[in-house]
Design a binder for these strands. Structure first.
Lengths: 174, 174
DNA sequence: TTGAATCCAGACAAAAAAGTATTGTTTCTC
DNA sequence: GAGAAACAATACTTTTTTGTCTGGATTCAA
């Protein structure tokens, strides 16, 4: 349940590009520039950028004045899409169960699992969070980030309430 | 941002012990028994249990009728304490920044970081979640888990609002 | 047209996490 | 007391993640 290096560094690079985009003179950054800004090696940064490019999030141009630029508006780039582009896809509930099946064919706990509901809620919140947040949101500063966060958290509570209601109805029918 | 094997399997083993505790005849389980129940190797389970024991969460007894039993009431064992015992401690905000410093001495973004507030909120929610949830909660079933979840989520919203308010006041003073 | 700066791609190396194997110690039962 | 069943501890192997290195290919400018 920790942030991976991929997620952290990749997101930082994306944010740099989002910032650069707001610069009227020069809205692209080269790998060496990003590396310098972030204190990372050029090779490492290049690796991230390649992934982002393949996913269509970033445009690249070669040559002496080349570099990378964000392909879309920062407000149109969710953090989830960045993470996905980087290859560090989060496991869905099903993938999760099958990947932690231990030695058995499928998870021993498929019915009556007491842990899954817990992970599911937590995981759902994280997904919601990363899907709703965009590069633009991050650029706006802490105060704005907090406001957006509150909105997401509030909606999350509503969703949980909805689930509780649904569960209750299901119970009554049975 | 994925659950580690340590967290998943370790928690499962702890839940098994919490279940066993409710059994009046036999409130302990041996490593082979847990391994069988969870579809894991005995050696692997033993490794988890050793950690849980060292952290004082679990009592162990050797010999032919030996095994492990939960040292406290399931309602007194938070998921956070289980995870911590297993060694997979979550990074605090400070640890986080220093561990992803790249090649520099400290993180390049220490002031005016646009990403930290985001991770901080998300991380705070996860921490809150794992601290509040206990083994007892997991045993109660999905419906109860959801109710507790809603409570935590609601409190989370309040905390965010509090932060927003504090931030606003801070801004005004400056 | 030559060279420098850049992206592109995959192989490679190092470190961490996941999982196994081995050897020993304790406890119970017969 | 001997043997079986269990925990204890650590070393070892495998896999995944993290990060580097190397050898291109493309573009621009002098």
């Amino acid at each position: 349940m920790n942030v991976s290096a991929l997620e952290e560094y990749g997101l930082r690079c994306a944010v740099r590009l989002a910032q650069a985009r707001q610069n009227p003179d020069k809205n692209s950054l080269s790998a060496p520039e990003i590396a310098e800004l972030e204190g990372l090696s050029v090779e490492y940064v290049s690796k991230f950028m390649l992934h982002l490019k393949r996913a269509g999030l970033v445009n690249a141009s070669r040559g002496v004045n080349g570099g990378f630029s964000l392909a879309r508006e920062p407000s149109e780039v969710s953090l989830a899409s960045v993470f996905e582009a980087l290859g560090g896809k989060r496991k869905s509930s099903e993938e999760f169960c099958s990947s932690y099946a231990g030695r058995s064919e499928s998870c021993v706990r498929l019915d009556g699992c007491s842990i899954r509901p817990f992970w599911k809620i937590l995981s759902g919140y994280i997904d919601e969070f990363t899907r709703e947040m965009t590069l633009q949101d991050l650029l706006k500063g802490e105060q704005e980030t907090l406001l957006k966060t509150e909105e997401i958290a509030r909606r999350n509570v509503d969703q949980i309430r909805e689930q509780i209601r649904a569960e209750r109805l299901g119970k009554q029918v049975t």
